[in-house]
């Protein structure tokens, strides 16, 4: 006996994501899901962004890590509300985890919420968190083959940040290859080249943020 279902496997996560999305719309909160490999500079970019924009916008961060609350403490030191989710082994955040964390940071009173996902270029991509947009960060020392190796993650990005461009003179990195590979799977997303460490190119990122904060959608 065969039962035909054609049922979405992650429907439970998608239901929770829809609730988060409704929450963001109701409270006019712009929410970005930040995805990258470990060490690409997610926290560094957020720290700098908070320091530079905290007078203009109220910002909160939901931190996802397998262990430790190091990142949440870095974010708090930069001047934003932060809540740490320790996933205890899980390689990505789920929409339900985000739902609980939103309460912990009183997200309804914020302009901008960043969800810093667990460092991983594969798994987070399959889990909608209800975010308004997705930021995918690639850093120069990781190598120029990453967009070709992880096409699904780059295809789902609203904006792509190429971080650590101050290291371009020191490591082999074919920038034109990266841009071409990204263009194949995601011709719409802008690619912003910057260094969160030196601040080079950071204004284009702030312009992107301001523009989307004004209309509250990616």
């Amino acid at each position: 006996m065969k039962v035909s279902l054609n049922q979405k496997i992650l429907s439970r996560n998608e239901e929770a994501a829809a609730k988060n999305r409704q929450f963001f719309a109701e409270h006019k909160v712009f929410c970005l899901n930040v995805i990258s490999s470990p060490g690409a500079g997610k926290t560094a970019l957020l720290e700098r962004t908070i320091r530079d924009l905290k007078e203009q916008f109220s910002i909160g961060v939901i931190e996802g890590d397998i262990e430790t609350d190091n990142d949440a403490r870095r974010i708090q030191a930069a001047g934003a509300r932060a809540f740490q989710i320790e996933t205890k082994g899980a390689c990505h955040l789920s929409a339900e985890q985000v739902q609980n964390a939103l309460k912990m940071i009183d997200a309804q009173t914020l302009d901008l919420v960043f969800i810093e996902n667990v460092g991983n270029l594969v798994c987070p991509s399959a889990f909608d968190l209800g975010e308004s947009g997705r930021v995918v960060i690639l850093s120069v020392p990781e190598g120029d083959d990453k967009p070709a190796k992880y096409p699904g993650t780059f295809a789902g990005a609203s904006v792509i940040v190429l971080n650590k461009i101050d290291l371009l003179p020191y490591v082999p990195f074919d920038l034109s290859r990266v841009l071409a590979d990204i263009h194949t799977v995601n011709p719409q997303a802008p690619v912003l080249q910057l260094s969160a460490a030196t601040g080079e190119g950071i204004d284009a990122w702030y312009d992107w943020l301001r523009r989307h904060l004004e209309k509250k959608q990616p």
């Binding site: 039962v3 279902l5 049922q7 496997i9 399959a126």
Partner: peptide
């Protein structure tokens, strides 16, 4: 233009008669 990626689906289950 790339068409939307196919979703993750549980298509069917077969049970012992």
């Amino acid at each position: 233009d790339i068409e939307p990626d196919a979703p993750l689906l549980l298509e069917e289950i077969e049970f012992e008669d």
